[in-house]
Amino acid sequence: MPSPPEVATAFGEEIASGRLINDIIASLYRVAWGFTAGVLAAVPLGLVIGRSLATRHALLPWINFFRSLSPIAWIPFAIIWFGVGDPPAIFIIFIAVFFQIALATSAAVATVPKIYYRVAEDMGLSDADILFHITLPAIMPQLVTALRVAIGVAWMVVVAAEMIAVRSGLGYLIVDARNGLRMDLVVCGMITIGAIGIGLDILFSRLTKIPSVRWGFDR
């Protein structure tokens, strides 16, 4: 185990060379794309599954099947399909986020109290109005919680993906340091990953402070 001064020195070297910043940016870039694409694809699917019992029965077993597969298991396919570089890592993050968020969204939609829909019917709201003004705001607290969990998973997965599929990012930093027996750099990478994980969680936890979402956490 490297001593704290050795780790501090390694930090200094990595920051001075600009490599740590580049690796952080590379990892965050992949997470941003994979996470955003996963959420944008999963939420509409979750809304459909949550509202329709028939669709839920048809698709939920498949979602559960794929959700149970570790995203890392997709790495061989990701490399075959997308080659090396950012795309396979982004794809793996997409997979990690997509099934989780789709399931969480469908579960949240299925538990929206029927009373909201009855009130909406009384008000004469259209299907689109109901989707955007009733269903989506009603599931926001659960969705925010799911996003917090998913961003943590996405961050874990990007590090794992970078250990195999790419030659940049914090995961690659750790593998590269291990190959060079630079355990001080390994610890430096681990501390950075943990710190950014905390930062991402703090960032997403701020979503719970939005007034129209706060009701789901103020109990």
């Binding site: 009373i115 008000m123 926001m140 129209s212 789901g216």
Partner: peptide, 21 residues
């Protein structure tokens, strides 16, 4: 219009927004 025992208000809207809705 129906008034329910409880829970008929939209919790993500303020009092003003609920009435306006």
């Amino acid at each position: 219009r129906t008034i329910y025992q409880d829970g008929g208000l939209f919790p993500w809207l303020t009092v003003r927004q609920n009435i306006a809705g």
